[in-house]
């Protein structure tokens, strides 16, 4: 079946020259978009149009365009990664939009993710949280035998689910409190569930939470909005585990 063509769309896009500029919305018209094209391809077409009109193209983040790298972002029509559940912006298709629609596109809004240009924000804050403790300290050397350390299937499964986090930032972007708890919980949970990560679990939980607070993310109130918008469906059950891990670590102090 041939893809339908959307004859005209109106795009309301946040434009901001650089981190210091004020920024504001610009409205663009775009024509003849195939419903089979992806959302980012639609933005590519807009940018070609802008370039041919000698205008500055819209800056937006993207890399793999297949939902695995976590580089794309965008708050589309009031929702992180757009109207579809469980997908990243790069996996969103134009078939989700209707003829003549006005689409509002904003960058992640979160004090800890400042806008660098147009729709691109600096998500370095998540990197800093990871650097604070989101790793296991091991000596490099030969590749260890995959089955040398037995891991119970339920723990392996849960760790795997948590490991699906791609660090996109949608959790903090969508949270009414700008809380990064889902991201931090996914990382802490993934490692705390596995024998290799257990050793540093206490230090990790404390260091990552301290960093998260220091960077100005808000306090979690368990609304669950993050898990609804997370492209990898990370469950807030991991947040409960983070709370336990943090309490355990603090009680040991």
């Amino acid at each position: 079946m041939a893809d339908k063509i959307l004859k005209e769309l109106t795009l309301k896009i946040w434009r901001q020259k650089d981190a210091k500029s004020k920024g504001g919305f610009e409205t663009y018209k775009i024509h003849n978009i195939s419903t089979g094209s992806s959302f980012l391809e639609m933005l590519d077409i807009l940018n070609e149009q802008l370039v041919s009109e000698n205008k500055e193209p819209v800056a937006f983040d993207h890399d793999c365009r297949e939902g695995i790298c976590g580089t794309c972002s965008l708050f589309i029509d009031g929702r992180a990664h757009g109207p579809d559940d469980d997908v990243t912006t790069c996996q969103l298709h134009m078939r989700r939009f209707n003829e003549g629609a006005t689409i509002t596109i904003e960058p992640w809004r979160c004090g800890a993710f400042p806008v660098i240009k147009d729709l691109i924000v600096d998500r370095g804050a998540y990197e800093k949280i990871l650097q604070a403790g989101g790793y296991v300290s091991v000596n490099t050397g030969g590749v260890p035998d995959g089955n040398a350390i037995p891991i119970a299937k339920p723990a392996a499964d849960e760790a795997m689910d948590a490991a699906a986090c791609i660090g996109c930032g949608a959790c903090a972007a969508t949270c009414k409190n700008s809380s990064a708890m889902l991201f931090v919980a996914a990382k802490v949970s993934q490692l705390a569930l596995l024998p290799q990560g257990k050793i540093e679990a206490a230090r990790r939980a404390k260091a990552m939470v301290a960093k998260m607070d220091e960077l100005g993310f808000g306090n979690c109130t368990n609304t669950g909005a993050c898990e609804s918008e997370c492209p990898k469906s990370i469950s807030i059950e991991h947040i409960a585990r983070l709370n336990r891990e943090f309490l355990k670590a603090k009680l040991k102090d």
């Binding site: 919305f25 029509d77 904003e106 009414k176 700008s178 100005g216 808000g218 306090n219 609304t223």
Partner: peptide, 25 residues
């Protein structure tokens, strides 16, 4: 108060209805 100031610039358009309950917000 901390949560309010964690987002200095608000979204122009926001659709939370399907995300979480009204009471929780």
């Amino acid at each position: 108060l901390q949560n309010r100031s964690a987002r200095p610039i608000k979204y122009d358009r926001r659709n939370q209805a399907g995300n979480c309950t009204w009471s929780s917000r």
